[in-house]
Amino acid sequence: MKNNVLSLLLAGLFIASLSFTSCKKEEEEEVEPISGRTVNYTVLVVSGTGSSTKNVQGLESAKVTISVNGETKSVTTGTSGQATFQDLVSGVAAVTVEAENHTTLNYLVDLYPNLTGTSSTDTLQYDATWMRNASTLVTLFPISGEGTATIKGSVTAPLDLSDTDDEYAPSGTKLTATITTNLANFNDHTGDGKVFDFVYEGISTNTTVDATGKYTLTVPAIGDGLQITIQGDDFESAWTNFGGTAEDPDIFSVNTSTVTVVSGTTTYLDLSYF
């Protein structure tokens, strides 16, 4: 009788052990990366100091940060300008690319596999023997030093109509220069997935009119030219009419002006308030 009871206990323990081992194996399989559902993703960072065609010179020491499925990783580029992320789980990733003295780029990249079939029967390309790869070329634009351009000129306003010449705008009047070229054209993606929602930081530069009515702006540029739009803040000032009589303060505005700037050059642009 004792032998029968002991046999039953041992059999129960053996079955429980098999059940535990099976559950553990299933858990391990659930968290193990699945080939075809992971991707090696490379970001090639270049500096927009050349032309509108893709610059092949990599940008060293750029920091690339990627966040996907709740995980964030950062890689600093070497001399090749490349940052590679191994075995990323497929999904939509948020990427930030930044470098000293350059604009910062934020974008989203869809790292899901490409689809096959018709619109009604699309299936994900998961293959147990296939590791997917994707890469994105991104361009950062210098905001100081090599690769920039200069815009300078005078800023006038009709503050005394009894005088044939316009007066200078008040010292401290703020001017803003912004890149208006479509910068998404300077980025490219190959392999699985796609990139969307490019957002640049640092594409606007500010300055103020000095005491002599002059201004100078340093702006990003490329060899083939970038389009820059300049805006000036409104200001309030007293003014003098044609008869020489002082009038109450009024609001003065300036129209936006657009110029194309080339790396290493100076563009002269005078602005007139009204």
Results as ranks from 00 to 15, higher is better:
Gly193Ala: 05
Ala83Pro: 01
Val209Thr: 08
Thr256Lys: 12
Leu124Asp: 12
Phe20Ala: 14
Glu26Cys: 00
Ala177Gln: 00
Val199Tyr: 00
Ile179Pro: 00
Asn241Glu: 01
Thr258Ser: 15
Thr96Val: 15
Ile34Asp: 01
Glu71Phe: 12
Lys2Asp: 12
Gly153Ala: 11
Tyr107Ile: 09
Ile179Thr: 10
Pro33Lys: 05
Thr104Ala: 07
Leu6Gly: 00
Met1Gln: 10
Gly91Glu: 08
Glu32His: 12
Phe14Cys: 09
Cys23Gln: 12
Ala99Tyr: 01
Val46Met: 11
Thr267Leu: 14
Glu60His: 02
Ser80Val: 04
Ser51Gly: 08
Gln125His: 03
Gly223Lys: 05
Lys174Trp: 00
Gly58Glu: 08
Gln57Gly: 01
Thr176Ile: 05
Val39Cys: 13
Thr150Gln: 13
Val199Gly: 03
Gly213Lys: 10
Thr173Gln: 09
Ser162Trp: 11
Thr176Trp: 04
Phe198Asn: 14
Ser253Gln: 04
Asn3Tyr: 01
Phe242Leu: 13
Val97Arg: 13
Thr258Val: 09
Ala128Asp: 13
Gly232Gln: 07
Pro142Leu: 05
Leu140Gln: 08
Gly264Leu: 09
Gly145Arg: 01
Lys54Gln: 11
Met1Val: 06
Pro142His: 10
Val45Glu: 07
Asp160Val: 11
Ala221Tyr: 05
Asn182Val: 00
Trp130Met: 03
Asp87Glu: 13
Glu29Gln: 12
Leu175Ala: 12
Leu59Gly: 09
Glu100Phe: 03
Thr148Met: 06
Leu183Tyr: 01
Val109Arg: 05
Asp122Cys: 08
Ser47Leu: 01
Thr181Ile: 08
Phe242Thr: 13
Leu13His: 11
Ile251Val: 15
Asn182Glu: 12
Thr216Met: 08
Asp233Gly: 02
Ser257Ile: 10
Ser90Lys: 13
Thr121Ser: 15
Leu161Gln: 11
Gly264His: 06
Asp188Ala: 04
Leu175Pro: 09
Thr245Pro: 02
